[in-house]
């Protein structure tokens, strides 16, 4: 393998244990800037757990993780929010705030980052227009369809212009058409230079891409193509 640029994501002999059980065992991998990779494997293999380690939703039990050049074991609790602003995260269960409008759900990212109201309004409007969701701006998420909610989740992940997007089963519960829209948005992000890691057990989704595939089985990395 030729020498490449510094990795966007790198894991060295990472373990994650819940009690005595190893959810992840001796994981080493590297994802390079502007790659679009898949993390696959049956349910319970550890895909979600691996993504959690990457955004510091959980601490690794052993091993080292580098994300965007930062050693995650060295980030103080206080710095975690700033670290997370470099990532766009799409959660398996959307994690939209049910009692807040679509606008607020997306604007929250920019408010937390301290941007001005005017700029926030402009960016959120623009983002929603580009996803053809402008009419839903004042709607509460629970009254949207699954595909629409996932689009809002993607919008929230992208609004802060992160370098890396981590997506957990982004098409998991969507019909084909909605899934196609989401995949299109992720590909756009990739084409603009972003790095994408998608965890999925959806083989159709994997076939639709051309990136490398990391296969997990019972917490172990069994193949990296």
């Amino acid at each position: 393998m030729t020498k490449r640029r510094d990795a966007a994501i790198q894991m060295f002999n990472v373990y994650k244990r819940y009690g005595a059980k190893g959810a992840l065992v001796d994981i080493s991998l590297a994802v390079y800037p502007n790659e679009f990779v898949f993390l696959t494997g049956p349910s319970g293999a550890g895909k979600t757990t691996l993504l959690k380690l990457l955004y510091l939703g959980e601490q690794a039990s052993a091993g080292q993780i580098l994300v965007d050049g930062m050693n995650l074991s060295r980030i103080s609790r206080r710095r975690i929010p700033y670290f997370r602003r470099n990532l766009g995260i799409i959660f398996q269960d959307y994690k939209l705030i049910a009692s807040r409008s679509v606008y607020y759900n997306i604007a929250l990212v920019l408010e937390a980052a301290g941007e001005t109201q005017r700029l926030i309004r402009k960016k959120v409007r623009y983002m929603l227009r580009s996803m053809d969701m402008e009419k839903k701006i004042d709607v509460l998420p629970p009254s949207l369809s699954g595909g629409e909610q996932q689009r809002i989740a993607v919008a929230r992940a992208m609004i802060g212009r992160p370098k890396i997007i981590l997506a957990d089963e982004p098409t998991g519960s969507l019909d084909e058409a909605s899934a196609g829209v989401i995949v299109g948005l992720l590909k756009d992000f990739h084409n603009r230079g972003g790095t994408v890691m998608v965890a999925t057990h959806d083989s159709a989704l994997i076939r639709s891409g051309s990136g490398r595939i990391f296969q997990l089985e019972r917490g172990r990395l069994v193949s990296a193509a």
Partner: peptide, 16 residues
């Protein structure tokens, strides 16, 4: 609590 958890995940500081 759910909203606060989500705020943390999208990069909100404790003081925010």
């Amino acid at each position: 609590r759910e909203e606060i958890e989500i705020m943390r995940l999208v990069g909100a500081t404790d003081s925010f």
